[in-house]
Simulated assay, not measured.
Amino acid sequence: MILWIIDTHISRKEYFVETSEKIIIRSYVADLFTSQISYLENQIEGIVYDGNIEFLHHTRVMSRRIRNTLTVFSPFIGKKTSKRWFISFKKLTKSLTKERDLDVQIAFLEKEISNISEQKYLTGLQRLLLRKQQLREKKQNGVKQSILNFEKEKTLTEIQLFIDNNPFDTESFSLPNELKRLSYLEIEKLTKICFSYVPFITSPDNTEALHSLRIAMKNLRYTTELFNPIYPQLDSFISTMKKFQDDLGEIHDYDVWLTDLDSFLDEEKQRINKFYGQAGPFNFIKPGITYLIDEIKNRKIKIHEKFLERWNEQFQNQFWSNLRIIFENFDN
């Protein structure tokens, strides 16, 4: 397992530290992979044999988490291998994105419809739900094909081999300084990315900046979770990051809905006009969609206010400073 290094300028002490720490870190990564892969396999099995929409959601989330693992620990896994595995997981995530988005929107509409009694709104919302369900049905075969394509690549088999070749021993594990240093550098880098969007978060109209912050916060959270086993005190920080991510995710969902509803109005009007030869029946559809647009705009404002309040509160409570302190304890 030791990689021999031929360099007369490297002392025996430096050689020992470099190789032993690398071996320990690889075993740490293998331990992370063990739980991640086991969970992913269970979710994929659920997609194939159960069909519950939550299995698809959890598959996408875990594939993203694994991509974070590959990005952070690429030097210890092997850059070419990490890149190949990363591409495999990215294709899996991307192939399931449209389906998951539709599942979320269908569940959202079903809940909205169950809470509305006025017929003038129900007609449009039920038509919108029908279109979403029709589109989701068309994509169902694509979900299973995506799983088959992923399984053909044997990525999970290769990762299992990496796990077998780098056994993790809890009792003998000693936290390497290089792992502490890596954690500091990664969290510092991702925190800076998050803060690059902070000047733009005060307005709910800064759609792109809020969306970019959502992605950056998700990467920060998933990367922080990678170091949770060596820093148990990160639990509360990860919980807060998830709340940030959930708020920003809800804002993003509303932005997607607003764009989607505008497109739906145009497309449905054209469809009705083509079928009936005139757009009169569209007047039964429009009120429900207009109602939903107004409702979503109001909800977006409220969740944005909630996010800002949470952000400012955590900033005043030294959340970011305290997070940094956890990772600063390493030898340069």
Rank of each mutant, 00 (worst) to 15 (best):
I106Y: 00
Q140M: 02
Q43N: 13
K297F: 02
E171D: 15
I25K: 00
K243C: 05
I47K: 03
S196T: 11
D247R: 02
I215Y: 06
E18C: 15
D103R: 14
F86D: 12
F73K: 05
G288M: 06
S239K: 14
E110C: 08
P287H: 06
I251F: 02
P287V: 12
S88D: 05
T97M: 15
F168T: 07
L185M: 10
D246Y: 00
K300I: 02
I113E: 03
I303L: 06
A279N: 04
L265K: 08
K152A: 09
N312K: 11
S74I: 06
L292R: 06
S35Y: 08
K138Q: 09
G249Q: 05
E250P: 05
I5S: 05
K274Q: 08
R12A: 15
W311P: 13
F284D: 02
Q314S: 14
F227C: 07
I251Y: 02
K302H: 09
H58W: 14
P199F: 00
W311F: 06
A216L: 06
I113R: 04
E151G: 04
Y291W: 09
F330V: 08
L3V: 14
Q314K: 14
I238T: 08
R100A: 14
E267M: 08
N228H: 15
N165K: 11
S117V: 13
L323R: 05
H252E: 11
G280P: 01
